[in-house]
Design a protein around this nucleic acid. Structure first.
Length: 288
RNA sequence: AACCGAGCUCAUGG
């Protein structure tokens, strides 16, 4: 059963929900964990109906399942339903409370987030960081800072959250200070830095960060190209696009948009069509 | 003893 569950996890993890379902159906034996694995797949990919159906079909949803259900309502923005479930579930733990904190913050109810946080018997890195993120999202930089000071230990995720907290307030000194102080940088750190600079109009610095980032995912390329295009640097955007291809990166649908934006800025629609047409052919993308 | 859940980053046609 355990190895079956691991395989099931594999299907879900790679996004093959159909296969997961099939596999699940044909499993000789299923445990509550098996249900949860498939269920989490629905949650993760936003299949609300299926998640709901599965949840109600569980005889005794575990705390994991309850939390999953809260998470999906948080994603769909149905905070009241999330809250209802949270109130109804038999127990709470770090995970469920943290999920609920985040759900409230997404809707701008930071005070409620804080109240939940204060009511928790214990905290860990995730719950602290969620609270910081809650303040950050809602523009409360001071509070985010205070919490960051108070938390007993910090990891990369919490440091990254602080980058964003400052960036959202346009506090670039803070952003730089955090970046320099933090012990290590990962892909998310660079992503945060790139968008921090880009959103505040520091295209040059954004690009510098981009160069420092070893794992330049397609998203980073797109982010930067869009920023260039929006700020009237169409040619730089287009140049990046070509470099991206040279470097062997896969353009995706969003790259389309970035390129289109760039060309529309210089009013060269013909070229845009040509470029998009060839992208469609080269990469099998649909310029919907 | 072993399998599942929460927090940071990311683009999108305003």
């Amino acid at each position: 059963v355990v190895t079956g569950n691991s395989m099931l996890t594999g299907f879900v993890y790679t996004g093959h929900l159909e296969e997961a379902e099939e596999f699940f159906r044909t499993m000789p034996e299923r445990t509550a964990v098996s249900y949860n694995i498939l269920f989490q797949g629905y949650v993760q990919f936003g299949h609300v109906e299926q998640a709901r159906a599965m949840f109600s079909s569980m005889p005794q949803p575990s705390i994991v399942s309850w939390t999953g259900m809260i998470l999906i309502y948080s994603k769909t923005g149905e905070l009241d339903r999330a809250g209802e479930l949270f109130a109804r579930m038999p127990q709470h733990d770090l995970y469920s409370c943290t999920t609920m904190i985040a759900a409230n913050a997404l809707k701008g109810h930071v005070a409620e987030s804080k109240r939940l946080f204060d009511g928790m018997p214990q905290h860990n890195l995730a719950s602290w960081t969620t609270l910081i993120g809650s303040y950050a999202q809602n523009g409360q930089l001071e509070e985010a800072r205070d919490m960051f000071e108070l938390m007993p230990e910090r990891d990369n995720v919490s440091w990254n959250a602080m980058i964003t907290a400052h960036a959202n307030k346009g506090c670039m000194d803070g952003v730089r200070r955090i970046y320099e102080t933090m012990p290590l940088h990962n892909a998310a750190s660079f992503g945060a830095m790139i968008s921090a600079y880009a959103q505040n109009g520091y295209l040059h610095q954004a690009k510098e960060m981009f160069e420092k980032n070893v794992e330049q995912g397609t998203v980073s390329w797109n982010t930067l190209m869009v920023s260039f295009a929006r700020n009237g640097h169409a040619s730089e955007a287009i140049e990046m696009f070509h470099r991206m291809k040279l470097d062997g990166h896969q353009p995706n649908q969003d790259t389309f948009m970035a390129v289109l934006t760039a060309y529309s800025h210089i009013g060269d629609l013909e070229k845009a069509c040509l470029e998009l047409g060839s992208m469609a052919v080269d990469y099998g993308l649909n310029p919907v």
